[in-house]
């Protein structure tokens, strides 16, 4: 069976000539259906660029990206994306923002009422659905943005540092919700992060990306049982994985 997402010699160069910036690659990588793959690397390594290229929102300079055997040429519309800055609009309530995804896709909001309710409940926002984004904390906003990216039930999700701007405690709480949702629905997830612990807690596989120009240094398969709660995180195996990643980054002088 073909992998769901297949990268072959993918690279990105910004500009041309002597001033060109080699941002990323070349990278080969395979992501199977239902996997949760983190792209873990320091800032500026091009992991967000890769995510945008997989989404078809940015053209690769070289190589080939295929999803489900089809080469990515333009924007992919059957995936769910969460950007670094959330895409909640200030003129809509939490619920309205989630429904914006449906409306832009021409889907009926009435037909999805129950599934929106369910999503809101799964991230504990049911009591805030009539609130506007500015009335919410940063963590609540990200939870709402997560629902927005998920409401059309995409089989593949691309998440670009969705927890990057949150405080440590909130991150922890949302991570737990995120993991619960993944266990329940099992979408294929590409998750961009610069937190080693976060990557190892959530992922089936962690792709370690080197500093610019970003390449996949190694893919660590994380063989730990789900749900990975507090217990698992204090286990020697978990700490072993964290150390493994830390060592690679130390080798690059990042840590």
């Amino acid at each position: 069976m073909n992998p769901l997402i297949e990268l072959t010699g993918v690279q990105k160069v910004f500009g041309a000539g002597p001033g060109a910036l080699h941002a990323f690659g070349p990278v080969d990588m395979k992501i199977e259906k239902g996997e949760f793959v983190s792209l873990l690397g320091p800032s500026g390594c091009g992991k967000s660029t890769l995510m945008l290229m997989i989404a078809g929102l940015l053209d690769a300079t070289g190589g080939r990206i295929a999803i489900d055997g089809r080469t990515v040429v333009g924007p992919q519309t059957d995936i769910g994306i969460m950007f670094q800055d959330n895409t909640l609009v200030p003129w809509r309530t939490v619920r309205g923002n989630i429904e914006l995804q449906l409306e832009l896709r021409g889907l009926s909001t009435a037909a999805h009422r129950a599934s929106v309710d369910e999503l809101l409940a799964s991230v504990h926002l049911e009591d805030f659905q009539r609130r506007y984004p500015h009335e919410l904390s940063g963590g609540m906003q990200q939870r709402a943005a997560f629902c927005q990216a998920l409401v059309h039930q995409p089989a593949t999700m691309l998440l670009d540092e969705p927890l990057g701007k949150l405080d440590a405690m909130t991150r922890e709480a949302i991570r737990t919700d995120l993991q619960a949702l993944w266990i329940q629905r099992h979408p294929t997830v590409v998750f961009v992060t610069h937190s080693i612990e976060e990557a190892i807690q959530l992922s089936t596989h962690v792709a370690i990306i080197t500093p610019r120009p970003g390449r996949v240094e190694r893919i660590i398969s994380v063989d730990l049982p789900y749900p990975r709660d507090f217990e698992v995180k204090s286990s020697p195996q978990f700490i072993g994985y964290v150390r493994q990643a830390q060592e690679i980054f130390r080798g690059y002088g990042v840590l």
Partner: peptide, 27 residues
């Protein structure tokens, strides 16, 4: 319009008109 919002709109496959009414105009 912010890059994120325009990318988000594109990723939904919405038509130019629908994107205009639902995102660009209010923004």
């Amino acid at each position: 319009l912010s890059e994120e919002l325009s990318r988000f709109s594109v990723s939904t496959g919405a038509s130019v008109w629908r994107t205009f009414v639902k995102v660009r105009l209010p923004a």
